[in-house]
């Protein structure tokens, strides 16, 4: 009994540690005070100011469009690559897997500065396109690693059965293989999408003047001093993620039934 209580207490403390900062951000986003120290009444003013801040809205737009485009592109390239890798001879497979692990193992900062060096060397104009290229680069390996296990589990006779029944290799892929590995493809896409959304390091080095993502915007805002606008932004993002998660959870349990 005492043991059980201790465990519950320990878990409780850890969760408080995890969520206290987020909770504080949320509470303070409603605090009507210029000197953020103490509570001086409820307000929605920071939310209004946030909405009026064009740079934040454009950063939000960039973040989402880049995340969607990069993860889509990475999903297509990565899924094709995973199928190719699966059919390779062992040695070629080993080479490709090592290349795939490179961006996974490489620290983000090294990926960031090395891509910066590449873009400068190629005389690319730093901005939206370079950001997109960089995001696709670090996303592809995660798609490959998510899709590969599904391909390994695939019954090799399924494709043959499709061909046998008159499907061309392309038809066999879209009608049989893809539906079978879809779970892995979706996982890969979601993984890539969240990595893109959350990325700061790589974006920080590969973007040009005037093109911000949310992370970069927040970073520069913290440099200017702490603003309650960031609190408002965090609250919106957190609630957004939370409701998305609850919807997904609900859907998953609905499907199970």
């Amino acid at each position: 009994m005492v043991k059980k209580l201790c465990k519950a207490a320990y878990a409780g403390i850890i969760y408080v540690f995890l969520y206290l900062p987020i909770l504080v951000l949320i509470v303070y986003s409603f605090n009507d005070s210029k000197y953020r120290g103490n509570w001086s009444g409820f307000t929605l003013r920071w939310y209004q100011e946030l909405m009026r801040d064009r740079t934040i809205i454009s950063a939000l737009y960039n973040t989402f469009t880049i995340a969607i485009l990069a993860s889509l592109l990475a999903t297509v390239i990565g899924t094709a690559a995973a199928i190719g890798i699966h059919h390779m001879k062992p040695r070629a497979k080993a080479v490709f897997m090592n290349i795939t692990y490179l961006p996974v193992m490489n620290p983000d900062i090294v990926i960031g500065i090395s891509l910066l060096a590449l873009f400068v060397w190629l005389k690319f104009k730093l901005g939206y396109i370079t950001l997109l290229l960089a995001h696709v680069t670090f996303n592809i390996p995660y798609v490959i690693l998510a899709v590969l296990p599904k391909i390994y589990q695939l019954n090799p006779h399924l494709e043959e059965a499709a061909l046998d029944l008159g499907a061309t290799p392309l038809q066999a892929f879209f009608k049989v293989i893809l539906p079978e590995i879809m779970a892995g493809v979706v996982t890969g896409f979601l993984l890539a999408f969240t990595l893109s959304l959350d990325d700061f390091m790589v974006s920080f080095f590969t973007t040009g003047s005037g093109v911000n993502t949310l992370s970069i915007k927040i970073y520069s805002m913290t440099k200017l001093g702490v603003s309650p606008k960031i609190n408002a932004l965090s609250t919106i993002l957190f609630i957004g993620v939370l409701s998305l998660l609850i919807i997904l959870q609900q859907r998953a349990s609905n499907i199970k039934e």
Partner: peptide
């Protein structure tokens, strides 16, 4: 069936954006 070739776009991508940058550094 030469399915290995499906990895070619990724191979090129990795060569340009993963390996070349490290070499430059």
């Amino acid at each position: 069936m030469k399915k290995q070739w499906l990895s070619v776009p990724y191979g090129i991508w990795a060569l340009v954006f993963s390996i070349a940058p490290i070499l430059i550094i």
